[in-house]
Design a protein around this nucleic acid. Structure first.
Lengths: 254, 254
DNA sequence: CGTTCTATTGACTCGATTCAAACTAAGTGG
DNA sequence: CCACTTAGTTTGAATCGAGTCAATAGAACG
């Protein structure tokens, strides 16, 4: 796994959702960070614990999840390079869910003290990070719609649409092709349906010519169609308009 | 509907989840506020619009909701006196969901400018309101578990447990009895199940001696049992420990 | 005092689950 | 390089939880 400048993807992510000044960028690149390699399924933060660091995803995927009574796992969100999935722990006492690597991943650990100090220095960055938490919450709201109102085909489509667009916002998923470490079982636990049924849904998506998915590579073959099936309207991601993120133009030229 | 001191319930709510100093309390009670009576189902904020005020619930209930493709309504959260359901709009451009009164309600409208000014004055209150947004998000995460992993009986039970505890945290729902303006149809749209099935679930809860519910009044008859059926563990509400909120003692004395 | 919600009941249907088995791909170690 | 293991995907059959449709009864409202 390669990382390059560990701050680059974070800056890109924050830039995709808020306005960043030169001084803000400088402050961010001065954050102390410990880079750590994670094995697949390695835990970063566990329910009930107190966090001292925030985790910036540098490469690979992470995901948040929680168990229900009968030990069934519900995946709450997927996280990609540039995300800080546990930013919210800055102002909560105890983690109320688990954070793990989905497949091998690289993360950067940033001490809460450094982040809190950053907030004191920059009023604007306080608002940017607060906003980032709010967008995180907006995704949960959409996830609720997904589980509450959409059938299995739409659920899976919606999840794939969301991850595609978020990857594109940080410069991954060019040509609407990306590699994702999740399995059909993972997707099942995210969509709240069984693994067997997820398989049938994935086959249906392939049959309709909406996606290709083999090994660890997903290719969106019909972006508009997939959005339609998934009832996907990206407003809730609160991305600033950037033609190259939403555009399907390049897909046609492939 | 009666309101009393419009800031009292807000202070109680914030006090239930964070430490408030004297100065903080004073600043809050100086927030300008326009009190407004809402008819049942009256809209406060609509998807796609830009907000200029935040809405503090003073009496009655409010709820957030969103439509999916086939115009089905998914309820995202219920809000009770002391809540500011659209606090998050302080840092987002466009509302990504709707906010309406559930039954007749009284709200206080607070200008964004006044709140932003408040944040500039008090670093602690900035963190308290940020924290409040994070707890809001924590409820969405639990709502995802509810829809993704629990059967209909547990879903309804869980929702009733949550609202009971939140009401108790602000001094409502004494003796585990409260009045709620929702109908079985509303609860169905919150739990992501049909109204008909909701009715059967409610009857089952009554049959098991867990709750009474007639007209607009809900009485919890077996708090421990209801929590068990609903797989309800209140950690995610991030309430500071207060014996009188969680305790079932008073229930036994009734 | 009819109109409109809201709650309730029964019969039928269907999407999704469960269980079980088979198949494929990717390691791993001898 | 092959035998063995393991993780992931695929298929079929039986079952079930919840949805839909339709009709009724009661409560609330203007």
């Amino acid at each position: 796994m390669e990382v390059g400048n560990p701050y680059a993807r974070l800056l890109r992510r924050l830039g995709a959702v808020a306005e960043l000044g030169e001084e803000d960028r400088r402050l961010i690149t001065q954050l102390p960070m410990t880079v750590r390699n994670l094995a697949a399924e390695q835990s970063v933060a566990a329910e009930g614990h107190k966090a001292t660091h925030c985790c910036l995803v540098l490469d690979g995927f992470a995901y948040r999840h929680k168990q229900s009574a009968d030990a069934k796992r519900q995946i709450l969100s997927f996280h990609i390079p540039g995300d800080i999935p546990d930013l919210l722990m800055l102002h909560l006492q105890r983690t109320d869910h688990n954070l793990s690597a989905m497949g091998p991943a690289v993360v950067g650990l940033i001490p809460h003290t450094a982040l809190k100090d950053l907030m004191l220095r920059s009023r604007n960055l306080t608002n940017v990070f607060w906003r980032e938490c709010l967008i995180d919450a907006a995704s949960f709201r959409e996830w609720v719609i997904n589980l509450g109102q959409r059938d299995s085909l739409a659920r899976i489509s919606h999840i794939i649409c969301e991850i595609t667009l978020r990857l594109r916002a940080v410069g991954l998923a060019r040509d609407f092709v990306f590699s994702a470490p999740w399995t059909q079982v993972d997707l099942a636990d995210a969509a709240g349906i069984s693994a067997v049924h997820t398989n049938r849904v994935v086959q249906e998506l392939r049959r309709r010519g909406l996606i290709d998915w083999d090994a660890r590579t997903i290719a969106i073959r019909d972006w508009d169609g997939l959005q339609r099936v998934g009832d996907f309207r990206p407003d809730y991601l609160h991305l600033r308009k950037a033609a190259d993120v939403f555009s399907v133009g390049e897909l046609r030229t492939v």
